[in-house]
């Protein structure tokens, strides 16, 4: 069964139609990278999967639940979806440890001791167990993003959504974050990643989706979409991304 199934999804902001009928699935265990120029609607598509944006029309089915149904308990659905943002969005008034425990306690109703045990395990997994008592402002961008990943992982999500997770990072900090994501993919996590990191997409993704102007232009394995694109628009975009001096 597929984890995410999107049918004829449309989203408009006022007059502007950002998504123009998207059909798209993510199978359990797959890593799907969504690429495309800015303004192509890829982030909006990702944010429709956990309803941070309400689709104008169409269906989104997550783990068999149609979340676009107005009667669905969206908070219950979001519990199973982890999201990592471009700007990290760590809770700046809480320590790293508290960032990772608060939703476990307040949403999953785990006890303090269990939540802290899980938090320390996930922080260990992203290589930041020694930063548990620090505040977000004391961490580098790369460290903050790894804490954000740990915060999402601690909720035991069945799907992780990444919205340009390395775009706000200094170049030398990108590698650590990608390494954590690579490891996560290796562990079999289902992942939907909006990214500009072509190397990561080529190496880790099971599928690469190229979007432009609110539509999916090309969808296939990375060796095809990145290495041998069929559409002129994909070729043009990749040419600009891979050879910016070109």
């Amino acid at each position: 069964m597929s984890t995410v199934e999107i049918r004829n999804l449309r989203k408009s902001f006022g007059e502007l139609e950002v998504l123009k009928g998207i059909d798209f699935t993510v199978e359990a265990g797959q890593v799907v990278c969504v690429i495309g120029p800015s303004g192509s609607g890829k982030s909006t598509l990702l944010r429709c999967v956990n309803l941070l944006e309400r689709p104008t029309s169409g269906q989104v089915v997550v783990d068999g639940t149609e979340i676009t149904d107005p009667d669905v308990d969206i908070d219950a659905v979001r519990r199973r979806l982890g999201m990592v943002f471009q700007q990290f969005n760590l809770f700046s008034h809480l320590t790293v440890l508290r960032n990772v425990t608060i939703a476990q306690e307040r949403v999953l109703r785990r006890g303090r001791a269990e939540a802290e045990r899980v938090a320390r395990e996930t922080l260990e997994r992203v290589g930041l167990s020694e930063k548990a008592e620090a505040y977000p402002a004391q961490l580098s961008g790369g460290q903050q993003q790894r804490v954000a990943i740990a915060r999402a992982l601690a909720m035991n999500p069945s799907l992780m959504l990444f919205d340009e997770p390395t775009s706000a990072l200094d170049p030398e900090l990108v590698g650590d974050v990608l390494a954590v994501m690579r490891e996560l993919a290796g562990d079999g996590m289902t992942m939907m990643v909006v990214t500009h990191e072509m190397g990561f997409a080529r190496e880790v993704a099971d599928r690469v989706v190229f979007m432009d102007h609110g539509m999916i232009v090309e969808d296939g394995p990375p060796e095809q979409v990145i290495a041998d694109p069929r559409h002129a628009r994909t070729r043009e975009f990749l040419g600009r991304v891979l050879h910016p001096e070109g």
Binding site: D75, G82, M83, F85, N89, F91, S92, H93, A103
Partner: peptide
């Protein structure tokens, strides 16, 4: 983004206001 992050973790709007937004 603070509200969005809290909601994405499954917090209700009220919970996110009380635990995340109002303290900040």
């Amino acid at each position: 983004g603070q509200m969005e992050a809290a909601r994405s973790l499954g917090m209700t709007h009220t919970r996110a206001m009380l635990s995340i937004v109002i303290p900040q």
